[in-house]
């Protein structure tokens, strides 16, 4: 997962796209170590444990769990993986860029 996510961040570095993680590793030191070791290039909330407050509120019972949120903050896809996920990201990024362009031309 890490290499693919890293490549997504690089691919969309000039576009309206971000990965936001919710990390549930058992200690903050461990989480920092993992970030360093895997050259993780996106930000993550630290949730303390798999039963942490964010994961509990979002009812997460399996890892990884994925949500795709559009530029307006609306949940558009849930539990999506592989090529389907990549295609959905591309679609939402293009949508966001089109909206940005429409805003500018107003």
């Amino acid at each position: 997962m890490y290499p693919h996510e890293r490549s997504l961040v690089e691919k969309y570095s000039a576009d309206p796209f971000a990965i936001v993680g919710i990390n549930s590793d058992s200690s903050i030191e461990k989480a920092r170590e993992v970030v360093e070791k895997n050259k993780i290039n996106w930000l993550s909330f630290y949730d303390g444990s798999p039963g942490g407050p964010i994961s509990t509120r979002w009812n997460v019972t399996g890892w990884p769990t994925i949500y795709l949120i559009d530029a307006k903050g609306i949940i558009r896809y849930k539990d999506i993986r592989g090529k389907e996920m990549d295609d959905a990201i591309e679609l939402l990024v293009q949508e966001a860029k089109a909206e940005q362009a429409a805003e500018k031309s107003k």
């Binding site: 971000a18 936001v20 993680g21 990390n23 949500y67 795709l68 990024v93």
Partner: peptide, 16 residues
């Protein structure tokens, strides 16, 4: 999270 508004977000619950 809301400070990322304007961007498409891949929200990823993860752990190593």
């Amino acid at each position: 999270l809301s400070s990322f508004r304007g961007k498409v977000i891949l929200l990823d619950f993860w752990g190593d």
